[in-house]
Simulated assay, not measured.
Amino acid sequence: MPLFDQAPNSICFLRLSAIGDVCHATAAIQAVQRHWPSTKITWIVGKVEAQLLQGLENVELIVFDKKQGLSGMISIWRLLKGRRFDALVHMQLALRASLITLGIKATYKIGFNFKRAKEGQWLFTNRKISDTESAHVLDSFYSFIEYMGVPRSVPQWNLPISDADHLFAKEALGDKPTLVISPAASKDERNWLSERYAAIGDYAFECGYQVAICGSPAEREKKLALDIIDHMRHPALNFVGMTTLKQLTAILNKAAVVLAPDSGPAHIATTQGTPVIGLYGHSNPKRTGPYNNLNDVVSVYEKLVTQQHGKSANNLPWSTRVKGEHVMKEIPVSAVIYAFDRIAKGNHHV
């Protein structure tokens, strides 16, 4: 039996980070809005992630700045003082997020199943979803809304990107088909090699594409972009550190194809309906791959996780990672060219 047999008055979602997971949560929240348009939605979200979501239709965003620690939590509790939600949907396993729930009043506090809850999350919830089988994070987020009574639907996204942001992308990219390379993951060891990104960039250029490189203003990302361009025989546009998150989303929207490791931009591109070639070694692409392009992922995860743990991915905990600085070197250029050709010729499967 679902938790609600009619639309609840109010639901508070708690998912602070990271950008990819926030994209997955957006699909679930917008599915709730389509099914229960009268339900008031509040979302407690991280500061950086809020830059992408600002203006999300009919969603009250409450921003948590993790740098503020306890004082940031207290400010959220003050903001919500005197309010009670029909449900608090607690989609984050980190203890920091669980502590925030202590000051939020809700009839039901819904968390992960015991099998998947980490850092004591089950201590902070009074309802647990039954799902322990969903491979992909997005599907596990959908299990929360199904538990409440929202039927399963194909994920759809409507991110608030302005006409000005779309114009920025149009002026930046023109009308040429573009391969956008977003080369940086959250840690350097999860990046592919500069010369291999460059080889794909040159290959795409010779196939009639222009190449654009995107990323944040972090020095390591700027350095990586320059290193890729240095290795290329053909020119590439460099937008690293030069876009807001919404402008980046507009560029990813206009791209013909995106090449990225497991990172926020890969999932932002998915929200825009743009094909993504995901490069995976450290994390399981069945869990965190670009949702609409799981068949186009180039992955060495399955091989390496079996080598490191002596068991296949199916027989290991949901979030098992492969460790080591050598991992991404295992991904050959030829496999990425093969994926690129399939997408360019329209033979990939969504």
Rank of each mutant, 00 (worst) to 15 (best):
H166Y: 12
M1N: 11
L279G: 01
F13R: 02
L304R: 15
Q6G: 10
Y280W: 00
F85Y: 15
E133K: 14
I62R: 08
Q33R: 01
H35L: 04
Y338P: 03
I268M: 14
V211N: 06
A97F: 07
A260K: 03
Q33D: 05
A184R: 01
Q156G: 07
E302L: 05
I145D: 01
L179W: 00
N315M: 06
S299W: 06
L259K: 05
V322L: 08
A169H: 08
P217S: 03
V305N: 10
G55K: 09
I104S: 08
R83E: 08
A106D: 02
N191K: 11
L179D: 09
L61M: 03
R190N: 12
R84F: 12
R78S: 08
H282A: 08
L93M: 13
L226R: 14
N253G: 11
M73N: 08
A185C: 03
L193V: 14
K246E: 06
S140F: 10
D165G: 05
G82K: 10
A97S: 14
G69K: 02
R78I: 04
L159Y: 02
G82M: 02
Q307K: 12
L252F: 14
V257K: 05
A204R: 02
D163G: 06
T39N: 01
K128I: 06
G289T: 13
Y203D: 11
P265C: 11
R321N: 14
Y291S: 06
A256S: 14
V322G: 01
K67D: 14
E60P: 11
R78M: 05
Q210H: 04
A266S: 13
S182N: 13
T288L: 07
D188S: 12
N126I: 06
E206Q: 15
P332S: 06
R84K: 11
K118Q: 09
D5T: 15
V305F: 08
F4H: 02
A164C: 09
N58D: 13
D65A: 01
A28N: 00
A250H: 11
I76F: 03
N238T: 15
E146Q: 08
K323I: 12
K323R: 09
R34V: 13
N58H: 13
